[in-house]
């Protein structure tokens, strides 16, 4: 297996940064609660590319192990977040986050 040069590593890192930033824009700008959480999944994908690329660069399995944990967190986050979305949708019958902008008990 050929050694990966640093230039090739940078390609993957820049792609991961681009995906992370696209997810960030979606997270900040969209109003649909479901899409906000979907944007965090895009950010997870960008980070996963970075981890796997670093693991390939250093030729060890730590990057892939980290991605296993990342997938665990993503699954847990998705289940909890979607449960919350369902709960909030039942209260107000809309997915718009602006409806929940004021906090009062």
């Amino acid at each position: 297996m050929a050694v990966m040069s640093q230039a090739i590593l940078y390609e993957y890192l820049s792609l991961g940064a681009v995906l992370f930033v696209l997810g960030l824009i979606g997270f900040v700008a969209r109003r649909n609660m479901i899409l906000i959480f979907l944007s965090t999944e895009i950010m997870f994908q960008g980070v996963a590319i970075n981890l796997i690329a670093f693991g390939r660069y250093w030729m060890n399995m730590d990057g892939q192990s980290f991605v296993i944990f990342l997938l665990t967190i993503a699954a847990a986050e998705a289940s909890l977040a979607l449960g919350l979305v369902i709960l909030l949708f039942r209260r107000r019958e809309t997915l718009n986050v602006d409806v929940w902008s004021e906090m009062q008990g």
């Binding site: 960030l24 824009i25 900040v28 700008a29 109003r31 809309t94 997915l95 718009n96 986050v97 602006d98």
Partner: peptide
Amino acid sequence: ADYDRVTTDPLLAVLVS
């Protein structure tokens, strides 16, 4: 839905990101 047609502060979000 209406809230899917618009975004909050797209300029600011894109600029910062």
